[in-house]
């Protein structure tokens, strides 16, 4: 059974409940990877743009999207991957950026480096490594509180 009467706006709200598997404080909608939602006949078509081409979370995210929609009675879901235009951190929502910072991940900035330590707020920072625990993050350290922290890379 497919509930084609579910309005697209409601599907967006459902997707806003799907967490990023690696950074569960933000949803796939806040991350900006859900690009388009529409009904095609009795099939719900969702277009996703992956963050990094090799990000292993992409297929987990697609499974989670299908699971959440199925739980709400939407069985016929087709997922489309679109790589153009390529994902950019500009697509992160303001809410997503705030959640990242509260979680201890410095949000991306166009300047290419974090603004302040997400732990203590100090601005004396150093780059430890250009790569962090996931493809989308780099490792930084605060010279004030000496804590290491993740920075969401700006691309």
């Amino acid at each position: 059974m497919s509930r084609t009467e579910t309005p697209v706006s409601e599907i967006w709200s459902l997707l806003a409940q799907v967490p990023d598997p690696e950074i569960p404080v933000i949803s796939v909608v806040d991350l900006g990877i859900v690009r388009h939602v529409r009904w095609r006949g009795d099939e719900c078509e969702i277009t996703v743009t992956p963050t990094y081409s090799g990000c292993p979370a992409t297929s987990v995210i697609e499974m989670e999207i299908q699971r959440v929609l199925r739980e709400h009675g939407i069985d016929r879901v087709s997922l489309k991957r679109r790589i153009f235009p390529p994902w950019t951190t500009e697509w992160l929502s303001d809410k997503g950026r705030d959640s990242l910072e509260r979680y201890g991940i410095a949000p991306p900035r166009a300047a290419g480096e974090p603004e302040k330590c997400p732990q203590c707020g100090a601005v004396d920072l150093e780059l430890v490594s250009r790569f962090g625990s996931t493809p989308c993050k780099a490792q930084w350290r605060c010279r004030d509180c000496l804590e290491p922290f993740d920075y969401f890379k700006c691309i």
Partner: peptide, 16 residues
């Protein structure tokens, strides 16, 4: 840090 960086780069390359 280098171990993680190399793994990430490998991942990007496999993704490409």
């Amino acid at each position: 840090e280098e171990d993680i960086a190399l793994a990430n780069i490998a991942l990007d390359l496999i993704g490409q």
